[in-house]
Computed example of a mutant assay.
Amino acid sequence: MPEVTIKYKKPETLKILKGLGKYLDFIVSTKKKTPVEAIAATEVPEQETYKIGNATVIRGDRSIDTTDLGEIFTRNNIDAAQLRKKAWERNK
Rank of each mutant, 00 (worst) to 15 (best):
S29G: 12
L17R: 09
S29W: 05
E89A: 09
A81S: 01
R59V: 00
K33A: 02
V28N: 06
Y50E: 06
P2W: 11
F26P: 04
D25R: 12
F26G: 03
N76F: 07
N91S: 13
V28T: 07
D68A: 13
K33P: 01
F26N: 05
T5M: 11
V57L: 05
N76L: 08
Y23M: 13
K18I: 03
L69Y: 11
A80D: 10
N54R: 08
K86A: 09
G70T: 09
E3I: 12
M1T: 14
T5W: 14
A80K: 15
S63L: 05
R84E: 04
T42F: 06
L69A: 04
A81R: 05
V44H: 09
A81W: 03
R62F: 05
E12V: 12
R59H: 06
V57Q: 01
E48R: 15
V28H: 03
R59I: 05
R59P: 02
A41N: 12
D25F: 13
R62C: 00
K31T: 14
K51F: 04
D79M: 03
P11N: 10
L24H: 02
L17Q: 03
K33F: 10
Q47E: 15
A81G: 01
I6D: 09
Q82M: 04
T13H: 10
K15Y: 08
I6N: 01
G60K: 04
A87C: 03
A80R: 07
E37M: 10
R84A: 06
A41C: 09
A55Q: 02
K51G: 08
E71S: 09
I64N: 01
G70K: 01
Y50M: 09
A80E: 12
I72V: 15
V44N: 07
E43L: 12
V44A: 05
A87N: 11
V57T: 01
K9C: 06
W88L: 10
G21N: 08
E43R: 15
P2C: 04
F73D: 05
I52N: 00
G19M: 05
K7W: 08
I27H: 12
A41F: 15
E37A: 11
P11T: 10
E37I: 14
I78P: 03
K9R: 14
E46V: 05
A55P: 01
D61E: 11
D68L: 11
T56V: 10
Q82K: 14
A55T: 08
A41D: 15
V57E: 03
K22Q: 12
R59D: 00
Q82F: 00
G60S: 08
T42I: 06
L83D: 01
P45M: 01
E12Y: 12
A55N: 02
E71C: 02
D68E: 08
R90V: 11
T49R: 04
G19N: 07
R62K: 11
T56W: 03
V36S: 11
Q47D: 09
I39R: 11
V57M: 05
V28C: 14
V44T: 10
P2Y: 10
D61L: 02
K31H: 09
E12D: 07
L83C: 01
